[in-house]
């Protein structure tokens, strides 16, 4: 059975931290949709290079990392107060 812990807790931790990411504060630099596509691609490469760390299963990516990223971006776009 694949452990659901990294998926659940990675997402919750990501939501906690990502809820405070507000790019509206930044002066003279802008982050648009294409910036986040690049961030997602870079993060997926990192997750793939990490391999199955730390839970051994059939997926070639680190699930804790991927779900933390999903949580961060989800709460950054949904919960964070300013754009």
């Amino acid at each position: 059975m694949t452990p659901l812990g990294p998926i659940i807790f990675g997402f919750i931790f990501g939501v906690i931290v990502g809820s405070q990411i507000k790019t509206g504060n930044i002066k003279d630099t802008s982050f648009n949709a294409s910036s986040y596509v690049i961030i997602i691609i870079a993060a997926l490469i990192v997750a793939w290079q990490l391999g199955e760390f730390p839970f051994y299963d059939f997926l070639p990516v680190s699930r804790g990392f991927v779900f933390a990223l999903i949580g961060v971006l989800f709460s950054k776009f949904i919960i964070a107060r300013s754009s």
Partner: peptide
Amino acid sequence: SQILKLISLPISIILICLGIMTILGGHIT
């Protein structure tokens, strides 16, 4: 500089994800 401002937010997000992964693997690694 502008380069630092462009690159530091993506690196921060990746560092945060790495930290979360380290916490979740703390009992085995």
